[in-house]
Design a protein around this nucleic acid. Sequence first.
DNA 1: CATGAATGAGACTTCATTCAT
DNA 2: AATGAATGAAGTCTCATTCAT
Lengths: 207, 207, 207, 207
Amino acid sequence: MIKSLPSRRRKEARPQELLDAALELFVEKGFAASRAEEVAVRAGVSKGTLYLYYPSKQALLQAVISHHLIDRFSVGVAQAAQFQGSAADLLRSLLVSGWQEVYDSDAAKVFKLVITEVRNFPELASFYHREVVEPVHRQLGDVIRRGIAAGEFRPVAVEHAVHSLMLPLVMLCLHRHSLGACAAAGQIDGHRFIQAHVDLVLAGLSV
Amino acid sequence: MIKSLPSRRRKEARPQELLDAALELFVEKGFAASRAEEVAVRAGVSKGTLYLYYPSKQALLQAVISHHLIDRFSVGVAQAAQFQGSAADLLRSLLVSGWQEVYDSDAAKVFKLVITEVRNFPELASFYHREVVEPVHRQLGDVIRRGIAAGEFRPVAVEHAVHSLMLPLVMLCLHRHSLGACAAAGQIDGHRFIQAHVDLVLAGLSV
Amino acid sequence: MIKSLPSRRRKEARPQELLDAALELFVEKGFAASRAEEVAVRAGVSKGTLYLYYPSKQALLQAVISHHLIDRFSVGVAQAAQFQGSAADLLRSLLVSGWQEVYDSDAAKVFKLVITEVRNFPELASFYHREVVEPVHRQLGDVIRRGIAAGEFRPVAVEHAVHSLMLPLVMLCLHRHSLGACAAAGQIDGHRFIQAHVDLVLAGLSV
Amino acid sequence: MIKSLPSRRRKEARPQELLDAALELFVEKGFAASRAEEVAVRAGVSKGTLYLYYPSKQALLQAVISHHLIDRFSVGVAQAAQFQGSAADLLRSLLVSGWQEVYDSDAAKVFKLVITEVRNFPELASFYHREVVEPVHRQLGDVIRRGIAAGEFRPVAVEHAVHSLMLPLVMLCLHRHSLGACAAAGQIDGHRFIQAHVDLVLAGLSV
DNA sequence: CATGAATGAGACTTCATTCAT
DNA sequence: AATGAATGAAGTCTCATTCAT
């Protein structure tokens, strides 16, 4: 077998390569329908090696999800606090380029994985809530509240407005890795939709 | 074993009972992690009886999905065509109570199932697109175009507006049967959100 | 369902129809690979009806074999005893037309069935030996011994000579219902071979 | 568990051990009535290991038959061509010791297996015909034709004479592994019968 | 008598996990 | 550390047999 990298370097990269392979496969086939051996093969190692790094298939799933979600959505709160412009500009700044990036990243895959597997692994629910839902809602909710207080937005129900902003963005990620991955389904131009959607909701929010 | 109904009557109900049990279980655990025998037990029959009605576990999945989606979303087009009021009123009429009902129905579960399983059963993609995406998009798109033509709505990109309306409603259904089913996750008041979301987007659409 | 015969008559014929269907199917697929229901269907009755006549699939097998072998090969001994011609003529008379008939009959199928199933149902061995091997060997052995005593045949080992006569005839029956039933295999003209074979062996026996 | 051999060595022997166990069991019980696990146990491995080497029970059957028949009967043709003695001597040389060996070998079991299973696996028919029937018939037919041409044999129908020679030898193999394996059945002294049979038929062939 | 829906033991096959090398 | 042969629990599906109608 050809190894293009020195084995020291490969060894250190193993856990990451396994996580990548696992994420890809779990999103593609679902956790239960994915074979541990295929994860290993995609990562370029043998079945046994997988078990050197992760004690079980389930532990691998949890590592995959933790790895991609921890600390990813809890940043930027401080940055938002000191933003100078309007609430609408801040939301645009936070959401458009931020979620275009998410949409293209592995985090989009992780959303699919969480939605798909959370009922079999309920501990994922609190983890996901703590690492994703909570920080994002706190941040966006604060900005919307600030906009309402400043007379920039209509006095809407903040929680619902946050959901109106966010649910389509999450759904877009899910779609990309479920129906959107199938030739027979309609495609969505994600980047353009994110822009259009944020614009539309902001128009609805403004006085 | 107690049999409260004559077997003739039971027999006719079997396929439906099996479909109901299968939908419930597949949504709960995912298709691959669900055991055929548990579907049978939930339907109150034995393993063998399941195979009397469906030749394989996969055929059962397909029957579940077909049963709930066929013809459900292709109705109401004619009704919309002759609607007299404003485009906004028509959209509200179509979406709010319509999707509150969907949200409470088995169709919501089927959305979860389709998103979860479509990559393992790609034929679901074209089926879902034909039975759900296509009719809904055609209908909503037409109403929005009518609103734009009448000067009631701003000239937005119609496809994106449809997605802004629909993706959160679908995501809401998915959420109900994934994270929303877990105690540890945040809950969403679906009915109120549907109302608030449609209102918000319509506000964003109006001139 | 159309019943072309009065049900009284059909009822009386049931056991025979079931035996015929079972023989055909067991020879075609083997006992273990044959389904009880298919026997019933071929006999034109339902699965349940089969069990009204035979208590189990194995009982059906035993009935099939008994029915076709009992008393079929133990006849003709007396007839042979009073035959006037040469031993060779007697053998020709007994074997040629007699085994051409066997070759065309259900008995040929039963040979296949016995050979195929005897190791799973050892009681078949003694039954077959008593009803077929013993009578045939006694009869043919006697004729050969008479021919040797009369100076018509060379003093060969009688048991081996009987086998030289009989084994190809039995093998011919087996072939008809195994390889011979497959298009891809070579065919044997059974009737002509029986004639030629008996002639050849009798030539070998004669002084 | 005691493992007397290094696993490398064991591994290489696995396929052969499985083939041997499968042949034995399939001949004993028939293919359909044999359980894959019992094949594995007889080969000293677990159920799963069987599937490491053969992808299905049916593939195992085909491997068993191929393994024992391929190239076994297509040899010796050249040897026969340059034989110097009489046709009768050549036939005796080819058949007597040759088939005594076959009779004692696994090939005898394979004959039983082919006859028993060919109607469920029709691809066996062409395989058997190509690997066994064709080479043997060509070879024996040539020798008989040579004997007739040399005036050593009577001008008999060659194909029938070949069958008169061969069918009893094949039947003898079948018998050994069906009725002959049952205590309740009559036994045949195979080696002596082969000798006697070839002598008898050659006597019948000679002018 | 006849039916065929229902059952559940049992067979094939898969695959997560272990462990000797 | 890495491998991959081996295991056996578990899952899908079949089918002989039963029994209510």
